[in-house]
Structures are given as C-alpha cells and as structure tokens.
Design a protein around this nucleic acid. Structure first.
Length: 801
DNA sequence: GTAGGGTTAG
C-alpha cells in the first residue's frame, strides 16, 4: 500500500530523468526495455524481462539495470536485487542510491560505507536521505548521527530531502527537541517536511504540539496542505478526545476538496471510533468504494475498541477470504479482542495463520503476538515467540519486558532488561517506563534511581509516560518528597500523572495531601476518572478520613456523574469498616444498587478482623467462601479470628479446610537493600551468613524493648501453640530479622528501609515503634498495602493500616 | 492514513 504523495512522486521522476539524461542518450531499444520493466508487475515477468535484456546486450547498461533493481525492490525481491547489483562492474551513484533506499536496513549502511571507502563516487543528498532513513528503521542513534554529520560537512545539511529524513530520524529515536531544532532551522519547508513534523509529534505523543504545528501550517500561506497533513493530525485530535475540533478538520478537508480521499477517511474512522462514535465510523467506512488494507485495519481496530468484537472478527475473516493480504496492523488491531475475552483459541489460530504465511518472521507481527499471549497470561508462549524471533527490534524487547511487569514477574523483567543492554538494542522511553514500573512493584529504589539517571542523560524526561512512571516509582519506593518534586516540575500532566501522585499520598497515609492535590487537579482543568476516585477513597481509608471519604463518594456520583464500580463500593466499605462503623458498612453493602461481590465482603471481613466482630465475620466469610472459594486469604483471616478468641479447634478446622483444597498461604518475607545488594529474610531464617550477629542484636533489642514496656502481641499471630513458644515464633518474624540486620550493618542514625510482601502484623508494628525509639532510627516499612514511617516510637499510619 | 511497546487504582 505504498501510495505516495504527488510531491514525492515528482521528486522521484526528477531523480530518474536527471540521471538518464546526464549519462546516456536514449535509444529505442533501451526505452523498450525500460517500458517492459515498468509493465512487469510480478516476479516471473520481471525475471523474464531480465533474461531478455541480458540476451540483447543490456547486461551492464546502468539505466536499465537500475530500473530493474528498483522494480525488484518494489516486489520485495531483495536478494535478487543484491545479486543484480553485484554483477555490475562499475555501479554509479544512482544505482547505489536505489540499493540504499531499497534495503533500508543494515545493508544500506554497509553500502554507504563501501561507497565512501572503495569507490570514487561522492554521496549526494539522496544518498544521505536514504541512508538516514535506514538508520531510522534501525533506530540506530549513533549511525544516524554520524550520517547527518557527514551530510552537513558535504553541504547537504539544509537540503529538503536530508532535513526531512533527519526530522523523521530524530522522532524515531524519541528526540523530540532535536527534531524540532532541525525543523526550525530549515530555510525552506515543503509539505512533506511539515507533514513529517506533524506525524512525528503525534508518534511521540506531543498531541497539542502536533495540532499547533498543523495550525501554523494552515496560516503559512505559501504551503499547501494535502490529504496526508489532515490524516497526520487527526490522531492528535482523537487522542485528546477533541471530536469537535476533529470534525472542524473534516470540514476543512471537505473545503480543500479531498474529503473523500481514502487517507482522510481512514483517519476519520479512527477519530470517530476512538471518540466512541462507532456508527459514524461505519458510515464513513461505507463511503470508501473499495476499502484497502489500511482502512480495513482502522475499522477492525474501531470495532475492537468499541466492544464490537464479533464485527471485528467478521471483518478480519472477510479480509482473509477476499485474498487480500493482512499485515501486522490487522493483527495488532485484533489483539484487544483476543485478550479480555480469553480468546486463546483464536489467538492460537491467528498465530498458526501467521506461521503458515510466513508473517511471524516480521518482527511487528511476532511482537503483536507476544503481547497478545502475555495479556492472556500465557507468558511461556510469549517468551517462546520472543526467543524464536530472529530480528529483535526495540519493540520486541519491550513487549516481552512489559509482559513480565504486567504479570508481576518483575525479576524476570529486570533480568531481560539487563540482557537487552548486552545486545545492540538500546533502551528507549517505552523500555524505561516498564522497568520503572517493575522497580515500583519491587521497591527497588537504587535501580530506579539509576534508571532516572539514564532518563536524564537521554533527555527522555519530557515523555509523559516516563515522568509519570518516575513519580510512581519514587512514591512506591518510599521517597514521596522526591516524587512531589518531579510532579511539580512536570509541564504537561494528564489524569494518570495526577492519579499516580494522589495514590502515592494514599500509600503514605497522607490523606489530606491527597485531597488537596485533588482540588488542585480540578482547578487545573484535568477531569478525574474512575482511578482518581479510587485513589482518593483509598487515601481516605488509610488516613481514617471517614467524613471526607463519604463526601468524595457522594461527589463522584452526583457532581461528576460517575457510576461507581465494585472497587469503589469496596473501598467505601473499607473506610467505614476500618473506622469501626461495622453496622454502617454492612448496611452500605446491603443497600448497594448492584450485587455485592468478593471485594465488598472481603473489605468487611478485614474490618471485622481489626475490630474483632465475630458475628459479622461469619456472615462475610460465608458469602466469600461461596463467591470466591479459591482464595486463601479469607481462610487465613477466619482462622486467625478463631485463634484470637482461643477457639483453637475451630481455627484448626478452617486450616484443615485450606489443606483439603490444597491452597497454601503465601510465606511472608522481608527485603532490605544494603547499598545495591538485596537481602531477603523469611520467618525464623538462619541462612544469612551474619545470622549469629543478627540474632544477638535481636535478643538485645527485645530485652531493651521489654524494659521499656513492650509486650508481645500473640493474639492473631499463630494458632494453638503454648504462649511461650508463640512468643518465640513472633520474635523471629522476617521484618524483625531484617531490621536487626539493618542495625548490624549500617552506621548509627542511618534510615532503615524494609519491604514486606504481606501486611505487617500487629506485633511487628508495635515492636518497630519501640525499636525506632530505642535506637533513634527512622525506619520505613513498605508492606503489601502501604508505607509506615516509624520515628521516635510513633508510626505515620497512626496505627491504622 | 491503520497498529504496535509504555505510566495510575485493586
């Protein structure tokens, strides 16, 4: 579907005629073959023509051979083209250019080097433009930069072809500012250059800028817009959900006379379907006489994103039936249909289809399939595809890395990231976003900081995904102030950015800060979404802000017309329940307009645990066993509740039940980073090389704590062991071991940070308060739910977690 | 022109 604009075609003609006129005088028979080549549309035809021109003595005729090579590249017969080239004794610059353009990969770069080192030819603007374009497809930063330098030295720095290629290149390697600089410095700008600027900005998510450049282009009287310009800017409008402005552009396209151009219609289909106007998209699709592959792809993805998965699958099958080839976009557009509905069979089908027709060898297709599999939690299948893909692009690496982070396999993500760095492929903003998310999940502050340094050195800070992920990473790794500093410095914040900061405050128990930030958000004109409200409710729950939570819930429903989801109800139950208003929470559940699910009952059960309400706990757990029999957590809670009442037989029977169902409790463990080395402890762990010192330190601490009035809390800790023995077991919980270790190996006064995979238990919480006072240390604990900052015998959570 | 790989909540 390589339809090119008129401008490009004219340029190409210009290129051809110049060369032919300067080198040869045209003869009749040469023209005959040139014509024949033009008419040869299939590979067998082309092979035949090739044989004929050899028989007629044109074997080494440069203009015919060049045309032949050009056509071979058109038909994707690259190795054939290479063989033809190698058979020519003295290729000229023009033939070199055709090859450099045709390959558009590492071969192009080798050819360029060969041209400079082994021939007496001098590269021209076309050579540079094509070679730089190859560096773009390779995303090879170094090669592109040196090619550009060479072009500048040779006086082609301000050439339109070269300039456009460079702008494209910088956008491809995510250097928005450099692209802008080149664009601004160009003495002359044509439509193609403007269009590159617009589409590059769109690809780099600078949607406002893209629209601004489009408007500048409109105002520049000397420049003609074409359908590509309109098509390029439309995605910016759909991303910003500016349906109306997008429609204005449609009117403009109408006025300019290319409203029915298939490019524009395709862009509009995308605009409308992203705006939820699927019916309008369908109408436009109908207006295209014979839809091509790209417009079908747009429609497929339109159906997909509007939940019309059957239509999408139908159109896909039609496309296959019509004998039209599909490409990676087609598959990619289908992926969202495949995953949430668990279409594993269809995914496998499409996979074997791609294998059958050789599509899997295309890295974009295998990347798309990798994503599909990892969204279906089929991480092994994803990995297999990744391992089998011969050419690994940055996107293939990213698909696999993000597959791991999204499935919670953070260690695998990080180790693959390290592998990626050993390969030639460098990390880009997408990679770093995923890795930052892994750091956040893992609490790996030192790696996170290192990534931050990398982000700064590569000037990726302007990327909104990256900076949002950085904020989230700092918040989740305990550095809430650092997170806020970055947040304040950020220019274009979106909902996700605000949400990340708000939930960061929630995590640290700073409910009031979360609420203050929310009103700032409303002021800034960014509309809240479901996640915003959830983060706010969550912040209220962890700060004990009952009234505020109820207020947020009300405003969500009334002022913001937002329909609460199960999560919102559950959070509300949590707020009421934690605050001890159990009856009110129960009433809230019973009065819900939708059927309460495991989330709501689970929240109620958790609250019953805190406030030791046995009766209500039974009601909640009975419902939970019905709704979610596989979940171990509820059994553990219930068993702990019985233990707390010293009803050991019942507690044991619940645990028996768990065993019968082969459900296992996740073992608790605690991580502490010393320098850049992580140390992990489990309960009663003696495997650490410094175990003796650790246990000695712990013993000393417990003695001092007891002198200060500490009493071991064994209530919900274990089951029916003797009091004394219980105390011993609680004393060696993994968090206590990690803290003791931290005290052994760090200087007095150093802050201690630990990470626990489960929620911290009451006894450890109290103990940590004592330890912070006795040792005069700040101790930061991240548990499964939130942060606790211990200082001077007090915890920031206000004993509320 | 379509579509990729990415951030927030649970």
């Amino acid at each position: 579907m390589a339809l090119t604009s008129g401008r490009r075609r004219r340029r190409r003609r210009q290129m051809f005629s110049k060369s032919i006129a300067s080198t040869y005088s045209p003869t009749r028979s040469r023209n005959f073959f040139l014509n024949l080549l033009k008419k040869s549309t299939t590979l067998p035809q082309l092979t035949q023509t090739h044989a004929q021109l050899i028989l007629n003595g044109f074997r080494n005729d440069l203009s015919t051979i060049t045309k032949l090579t050009h056509r071979l590249f058109d038909l994707n017969a690259t190795s054939y083209a290479r063989d033809v080239f190698l058979s020519i004794p003295n290729p000229d610059l023009f033939l070199f250019n055709v090859l450099i353009k045709g390959f558009s990969n590492t071969h192009s770069i080798s050819l360029y080097t060969h041209l400079r080192k082994c021939t007496r030819l001098n590269p021209d603007n076309f050579t540079y433009a094509f070679a730089i374009a190859s560096a773009s497809t390779l995303s090879d930063e170094k090669v592109g930069m040196f090619l550009y330098e060479h072009a500048v030295v040779d006086g082609y720095g301000f050439d339109l072809f070269v300039g456009t290629a460079v702008v494209d290149f910088y956008f491809k390697i995510w250097r928005v500012e450099l692209a802008r600089k080149v664009f601004d410095k160009m003495p002359e700008r044509d439509t193609v250059l403007w269009n590159s600027m617009i589409s590059g900005l769109v690809k780099n998510c600078c949607f406002e800028d893209a629209i601004r450049v489009f408007r500048d282009m409109l105002e520049d009287g000397g420049i003609r817009l074409d359908s590509t310009s309109v098509a390029a800017v439309l995605p910016a409008f759909s991303e910003l959900q500016e349906l109306i402005s997008g429609m204005e552009v449609q009117c403009l396209a109408l006025k300019l006379g290319f409203h029915s151009h298939v490019y524009v219609l395709t862009g509009l289909i995308s605009l409308y379907s992203k705006g939820g106007e699927i019916e309008a998209a369908k109408l436009l699709f109908g207006e295209i006489g014979r839809p091509d592959l790209v417009s079908c792809n747009a429609m497929i993805s339109g159906y997909t994103s509007n939940g019309e998965s059957e239509c999408s699958v139908r159109l896909f099958k039609q496309l296959l039936g019509s004998g039209e080839k599909v490409n990676s976009s087609t598959i990619v557009g289908l992926i969202p249909v495949l995953s949430p509905f668990g279409y594993l069979n269809l995914t496998n089908c499409i996979h074997s289809f791609c294998v059958k027709y050789g599509f899997v060898s295309q890295s974009s297709v295998s990347t798309a399939l990798t994503t599909a599999y990892s969204r279906l939690n089929e991480i092994e299948s994803a990995r297999q595809l990744f391992d089998e893909s011969s050419e690994k692009t940055p996107a293939s690496w990213n698909a696999m890395i993000s597959g791991y982070t999204q499935n919670g396999l953070t260690e695998a993500a990080i180790s693959l990231f390290q592998e990626m760095q050993m390969s030639k492929v460098g990390p880009n903003p997408v990679t770093l976003t995923s890795i930052l998310s892994a750091c956040a999940q893992l609490g790996a502050l030192s790696l996170g900081k290192w990534v931050h340094g990398l982000v700064k050195s590569k000037s990726f800070d302007s990327n909104i995904y990256v900076s949002t992920a950085l904020i989230d990473m700092y918040a989740k790794c305990g550095s809430i102030r650092e997170a806020r500093q970055l947040f304040d410095l950020m220019l274009g914040k979106n909902v996700v950015t605000w949400n990340a900061m708000i939930s960061g405050y929630g995590l640290h128990g700073q409910g009031q800060d979360a609420l203050r930030l929310f009103s700032e958000m409303l002021h800034s004109g960014v509309s809240p979404n479901g996640v915003t409200f959830l983060s706010l409710l969550y912040a209220c729950s962890h700060a004990g802000l009952v009234k505020e939570g109820e207020e947020i819930f009300r405003s969500m429903v009334h002022a913001n017309q937002f329909k609460p989801l199960a999560e919102h109800y559950a959070c509300m139950v949590d707020i009421l329940g934690r605050a001890g208003q159990l009856e009110k929470a129960f009433k809230f559940i019973k009065e819900m307009p939708v059927e309460p699910g495991p989330a709501e009952w689970g929240a109620l059960l958790g609250a019953c645990m805190i406030h030791k309400d046995k009766k209500l706990a039974h009601v909640a757990s009975e419902r939970l066993f019905e709704l979610d029999p596989e979940n171990v957590g509820y059994y553990v809670l219930l068993s702990n509740l019985y233990s707390a009442e010293r009803n050991y037989p019942l507690a044991a029977s619940v645990r028996q039940n768990v065993k019968k169902r082969m459900l296992a409790k996740i073992p608790g463990c605690t991580l502490i980073e010393i320098g850049e080395t992580p140390h992990v402890f489990t309960s009663g762990d003696r495997s650490h090389p410094q175990a003796t010192e650790i246990y000695a330190m712990l013993e000393k601490l417990i003695r001092k704590m007891k002198e200060a009035g500490f009493q071991t809390e064994t209530d919900t800790a274990l089951h029916d062991v003797e009091e004394e023995e219980k105390e011993l077991m609680v004393n060696v919980h993994s968090e206590k071991l990690a803290i003791a270790f931290g005290l052994v190996v760090t200087q007095p006064g150093t802050e201690i940070r630990i990470f626990k995979n489960l929620r911290v238990c009451v006894d450890c919480h109290t103990a940590t308060k004592f330890i912070s006072k006795i040792t005069e240390r700040v101790i930061v604990v991240r548990d499964a739910n939130r942060f606790h900052h211990f200082k001077d015998g007090v915890c920031s959570c206000g004993d509320y977690w």
